[in-house]
Design a binder for these strands. Sequence first.
DNA 1: ACGTTTGTTGACAGATGCTCAACAAGGCAG
DNA 2: CTGCCTTGTTGAGCATCTGTCAACAAACGT
Lengths: 205, 205
Amino acid sequence: MVATSESVGTTTVPTARMSADARRAQLIEIGWDLLQERPIHELALDEVAARAGISRTLLFHYFPTKADFYVAVVSAASDQLLRPPRVPDDAAPPERIRRLVEGFVRLVERNRGSYTTLVRAAGGGDQRVVDLIARTRDALVPRWLDAAGNPDVGPLAHLVVRGWLVGMEETVLSWDPLLVPREELIDHLVASFIAELGLANAAAR
Amino acid sequence: MVATSESVGTTTVPTARMSADARRAQLIEIGWDLLQERPIHELALDEVAARAGISRTLLFHYFPTKADFYVAVVSAASDQLLRPPRVPDDAAPPERIRRLVEGFVRLVERNRGSYTTLVRAAGGGDQRVVDLIARTRDALVPRWLDAAGNPDVGPLAHLVVRGWLVGMEETVLSWDPLLVPREELIDHLVASFIAELGLANAAAR
DNA sequence: ACGTTTGTTGACAGATGCTCAACAAGGCAG
DNA sequence: CTGCCTTGTTGAGCATCTGTCAACAAACGT
């Protein structure tokens, strides 16, 4: 059976010869779409191949192993989603923190599904994915410290900010706008971060 | 080949007829041991059966599906590990909070491996496991609020405490005792919780 | 001693990750 | 235009693992 143009699932795919880069990109996008519906261990590569209109063999040609494919997909999504927030201008520290908080809340509001998919991936999947998320979080810490007008401040502050970021993530992800007004949430997060950092610095004497 | 007494791996297993309960308990314990070495999708039920000295079929007799087995294992571990901390006595709120924090730090110190296994399970695995961990966390919130002398206080406080708990978990798990003294960590966590709760209550007017 | 319950197993079916050797489409030299 | 050569692409097959089925055998009651 000669491969013809076929519309499978969401994506309409002319099954013709494609450049390697285009194929990779297409497969990664399909993978990302499917990963938002179900976790990786419930996703058969058969289905990815079918949606792309290619054979499973070709998928293995681009990604030697299922784990490799998984890492590539999560990595691409992470690049796009956790793109470092541009620390805005040179306003006063409280305002800069507020901007960061607002940025994150907006991010979650717009991509709640994608974001939860990503953090879910952080837990269960490949070790490389765990490391990826861990590195991303580590990279975030100095950015927030900087926005607070606090260049490096010792190990406790690092530790504490890291924990606070994870806590904020959890808070925003389980936030129900019907129960807590958006503004109230943001106000609290800003005040919380400043208080937390104040405590950490006081403890460091 | 008649099943005889055989010592496989860690557990010495007389492969004889066992009571259903004993078998279940044995299999769950073996599963937990193995889960601490590698994530669920890298664990073949063959190996569990082999360690128990039984056939894979028998395992399926007790747990209809691999996911069921997984849930049973994680659930048992969770019961044992996340056993609700006994809120000690009727000391003043700050002291009670301190006790809770110390309890958690001690828990992580003694079972770091097990605990990370558990939270890793919270992310990647079965939906039932995710729900289990979520419920456990939810159940923790009122306990901490209570210890702080704050009976219910509205949605924001709940949300904030939930996020704070997750943040604390992250903080303690990535804590390096060589960089931050134990006492300093605990002092900060106690002060942080109190400050956080104060902010949330102030916001609720 | 016989039968019923139930712990236990080997053999098989279906799905899925992964390999291998070969085909075919496009570009480039002669 | 012809023929080669790179490379995107595939079908068939292998190994592993989950889950099923029918039957065996050890305890226990009658």
